[in-house]
Nucleic acid binder design. Structure first.
Length: 936
DNA sequence: CTCTCCCT
């Protein structure tokens, strides 16, 4: 066949014998793939791969690179090991593996996939699609990736954090493998030509890898810019533009890009009102079809028939096309066709003669709702999808001919200092806008209407920033430390995160006990270096093996206490999965919908209250609500029906279920003796367990502690019901939907702070003040030991203990005095000496204490006022570092004769001395063992 | 007393 002939005619390099692994493709597949632009570049690509360890391939969607390049490599004999391809999304990994298996006529045992919770990889697997996070985890187990012969990083232009880190790691792994005689190839595939971050980065690749450009098979998309750019009401503008397209232009789906759920729903409502197609939007399709058929019998629907594509080949001067098509905003006055510009007129009036099938699309939308956009729209209607960014990369909608682009995105912002998150709508990038436009040319030539001027477009940044520069990096730093990359600053990031972000990450990990604390003394420069190169601790290794954020990993590490593990796992899983409750706070489209929504809202509020419980369990707050929801949902079998009835997002609950399984395995792997398992009929935690859970949560969220501002301290009314946090000057609040909104506990920990109309804490849980110095000593300052209660000897630990007052770092909140070991220093030796003489350390000595020459409390006198014999006792203890029972015992054990101690005891003719002497005699002559003497 | 893009 053609493909094989083509290969046979090529002349391979003499030095490398050509190896062709035959592939038996069906004629249809063969024909289809020959149309893909990437096939024309097969020789160029394979030659570059032969001669370079790393190669960059640029080709936009439609080039076929994702499906074909792995096949080229397989056929050229590169599957001695596995050919691994990473994707940033699960769906892509799964669907690509199925497609390539089908194209190659091979079983999924050979062309397989692996994503977070599932996979079909076998011993025979030769081509493996996986999500980027999966490969990163594999590097933890085998740094050289010895089972792979090739790694392909796909969609590298998206610059997901895992992709960036993988490229950094592979830039070192590939040369290492080649040095060890186990050659490996790296291919980086990008949809845009912005690859300088990879190619012109000396830290990454010392010799820049070759870049191969591949054309994309796309239909032409004509871009129409607005003359004016509405700064406020871009949804209104989107509405008008969509109406015009629908009224005036030939058939073809419309895809509108907006920024958020609320906007999407509001535009859907307006469009449905303007072009009603059926009354009940919620009705299922079969019913809709029946209604539609009825309607169809009454009147025939006609759409305008102007062929716009006739113009698309011409060089387009802005607005020219629009003028002819009659839909532009850029035309001179009056040249618009018969559509008025007033929002209030015809557009807003219902026009059922040209029905529009309007569908919302966003990530959190239930999958069955999402699926509607892939089905053909009812006959006689035009499809109009109002979407967020999901439609830009994740989901491709068939049959789109018109794209309306508002030019904005909603992005998450993190305040680097305070950690506060917020969502802001900003201009998108040129690359993004072009990607959106491209969605109109998948099946035929299309048009993209940009609701902003070409000048504004020119001011867009060329590309969006790499994600790694826009978010906290503690999870990434922990993963890297686990790979023994201690100096994370020196890592060859394609784009490095800010130094501040790295320092913050390292500090948090030290506070959690995942990294060793850097030395506090030494030269300033060295100390600064040390702060950015703390090595990982054993706890850190365990935490790194848990696939959740470090704060949550700490909770899992503590979870085995008091039989809390199943609860900790459930809470951590629920906190990790976003939005477990459905969003019911959207305005309703009809009265019917409105009453339904009100009903569901009421039900959800009622269930949240039920799940939060009362008394002890209520104090776990929002985390108790999550735990209750997970428990109840699992008890009911995690059915879509139960979720629907109780306001839970089914997809989220399924994710939690899988995550619970994964976390349970991870905990068992680190600590097999706990024998954790997932119990579908998990009983609610006892009151005692709830207290324990709250303490575990506090230990993980220590840097997220907030304290209520007491009524008497409020000077400014803005602080009413407000909480103070260590890092912020302004108050933060408990969200009205929180279980603790009415309780307002004095101390709370929170999952995160989100700034909306106010600074709101999410995922709030109450903690007791006395736990803070106990569980978070790393965040506390301690005062001198209190005189009352007096320091005492703790016979179970064998140490001197005391109470100390404490304050929380930075803010200096007074916390309750806490019991703890007496601080290191001379005072501790004095106290220990006193307790020895009193017979508290070794009770057998007690009967002699009344015969001592001085009262044991004399040991507490200042150094200068001690008598020589007491000074000698103290001096010996200090020189031998004996300030607790264990130290005393080990000295007795190790220093055979204890000459020093003995000599002063004898010379002092003290009764006390005799006792010691007796002890020694007893030790060495009678029993020969230490234990009988000191047993309590 | 409310209102959140996307991904591991």
């Amino acid at each position: 066949n053609k493909a094989k002939k083509k290969k046979a005619s090529a002349t391979p390099k003499l030095s490398q014998p050509a190896i062709f692994i035959p592939v038996d493709r069906s004629p249809e597949i063969q024909e289809a793939r020959l149309k893909l632009p990437v096939l024309a570049e097969e020789q160029v690509i394979m030659e570059a791969v032969r001669e370079n360890p790393c190669v960059v391939i640029c080709g936009e969607t439609g080039s076929g690179k994702t499906t074909q390049v792995p096949q080229f490599l397989y056929e050229a004999g590169y599957a001695s090991g596995i050919i691994g391809i990473t994707e940033p999304r699960r769906v892509a990994a799964v669907s690509m593996s199925h497609r390539v298996a089908k194209e190659m006529n091979l079983s999924t045992r050979v062309v397989s996939y692996q994503i977070r919770y599932e996979g079909n990889v076998t011993d025979e697997t030769k081509i493996k699609f996986m999500t980027d996070g999966v490969l990163l985890k594999e590097i933890q187990k085998d740094f050289l990736l010895q089972r792979y012969s090739v790694i392909i990083i796909d969609e590298a232009h998206e610059r997901s954090v895992y992709t960036d880190i993988l490229i950094g790691l592979l830039s070192r792994i590939v040369p290492l493998r080649n040095k060890k005689g186990m050659p490996m190839k790296l291919l980086v595939m990008s949809a845009t030509l912005r690859v300088e971050d990879f190619t012109d980065n000396q830290k990454l690749f010392r010799t820049p890898p070759p870049v191969i450009k591949v054309d994309a098979r796309q239909f032409p998309v004509t871009i129409h810019f607005n003359k004016r750019t509405p700064l406020e009401d871009y949804t209104g503008e989107a509405f008008h533009k969509t109406c015009k397209i629908h009224r005036m232009l030939p058939p073809g789906g419309i895809l509108v890009f907006l920024t958020g759920q609320a906007e999407v729903h509001s535009l859907c409502r307006r469009l449905r009102k303007a072009f009603p197609f059926r009354k009940d939007e919620e009705a299922d399709t079969s019913e809709a079809m029946r209604k539609f058929k009825k309607a169809k019998q009454k009147k025939t629907v006609s759409l305008p028939r102007i062929d716009l594509d006739n113009y698309s080949a011409l060089p387009v001067d802005e607005g020219d096309e629009d003028r002819e098509a009659g839909i532009g905003d850029e035309d001179d006055e009056g040249s618009d066709l018969d559509i008025g510009d007033d929002p209030g007129d015809a557009e807003e009036k219902a026009d059922p003669s040209i029905p529009l099938y309007v569908l919302p699309l966003y990530s959190l939308l239930a999958p069955e709702q999402q699926a509607k956009v892939f089905r053909p729209s009812p006959p006689g209607t035009r499809l109009c999808v109002v979407a967020t960014n999901v439609a830009e990369t994740s989901l491709t909608i068939p049959g789109i001919k018109y794209v309306v682009d508002c030019g904005r995105v909603k992005k998450r912002f993190y305040d680097r200092v305070t950690g506060v998150s917020s969502f802001k709508v900003t201009w998108t990038s040129q690359a993004s806008a072009n990607q959106r436009a491209g969605r109109a040319g998948r099946t035929e030539p299309g048009h993209c209407y940009r609701l902003y001027s070409s000048a504004v477009f020119g001011d867009f940044s060329l590309f969006s920033e790499a994600e790694i520069t826009r978010r906290p990096v503690e999870d990434l730093v922990l993963q890297m430390k686990d790979l023994n990359i201690d100096k994370v600053v020196n890592f060859p990031f394609p784009t490095p995160p800010s130094a501040e972000a790295l320092v913050a990450a390292e500090q948090l990990l030290v506070s959690l006990g995942a990294l060793k604390e850097p030395p506090r003394t030494g030269r300033v420069k060295e100390m600064e270096q040390a702060r950015l190169s703390c090595p990982i601790t054993p706890l850190g290794r365990a935490m790194a093996s848990f696939p959740v954020a470090p704060r949550y990993a700490k909770m899992l590490a503590l979870g085995k206490q008091q039989d809390c593990l199943p609860y900790v796992i459930s809470v951590v899983a629920a906190m990790t999965v976003r939005e477990i409750f459905v969003d019911l706070d959207r305005p309703a489209g009809s009265e019917d919908e409105s009453s339904k929504l009100t009903q569901r809202r009421a039900r959800l509020t009622q269930m949240r209250r039920l799940w939060a419980g009362q008394g002890a369990s209520l104090l776990l707050g929002d985390l108790m609500v999550m735990l209750g929801a997970v428990g109840a949902c699992e008890f009911a079998g995690c059915t879509p029906k139960f979720c629907e009835e109780n306001g839970l997002r089914y997809k989220a609950m399924v994710e939690i279920r899988r995550l619970r399984g994964q976390l349970t395995n991870a905990v068992n792997a680190v600590c097999p003796e706990v024998g954790a398992f997932v119990d579908p009929k998990m009983a609610p935690p006892t009151e005692h367990q709830v207290v324990c859970l709250r303490q575990i949560v506090l230990a993980g969220l220590g840097d997220h502690l907030a304290r209520r501002v007491q009524a008497e301290d409020i000077l400014d009314p803005k602080w009413k019901n407000g909480y103070k946090t260590p890092l912020m000057d302004d108050p933060v609040f408990i969200h009205p939907t929180s279980a603790l909104f009415k309780t307002l506990p004095e101390f709370v920990v929170y999952q995160e702070i989100m700034e909306t109309t106010k600074m709101y804490m999410r995922g709030v849980s109450a903690v007791e003040a006395e736990w803070v110095p106990e569980l978070l000593p790393q965040y506390c300052h301690f005062g001198p030991p209190l005189e009352s209660p007096q320091p005492w000897f703790c016979s179970s630990s064998g140490t001197v203990r005391c109470h100390r007052s404490s304050t929380f770092f930075r803010v200096g909140w007074q916390l309750p005095a806490v019991e703890m070991e007496y601080p290191d220093g001379l005072e501790r030796y004095k106290l220990f000496a006193k307790f020895v003489l009193e017979g508290q350390v070794c009770p057998k000595l007690k009967k002699h204490s009344s015969h001592l020459l001085s009262n044991p409390s004399i040991m507490l006198k200042t150094w200068a006022r001690l008598q020589p014999r007491t000074e000698a006792v103290l001096g010996t203890l200090v020189s031998k570092r004996i300030d607790c029972r264990d130290a005393l015992l080990s000295i007795w054990k190790t220093e055979d004769k204890c000459e020093e101690l003995m000599s002063f005891l004898v010379s002092n003719h003290d009764v006390f001395s005799c006792i010691f002497l007796l002890q020694f005699c007893c030790l060495h002559t009678v029993s020969g063992s230490l234990n009988p003497c000191i047993k309590m």
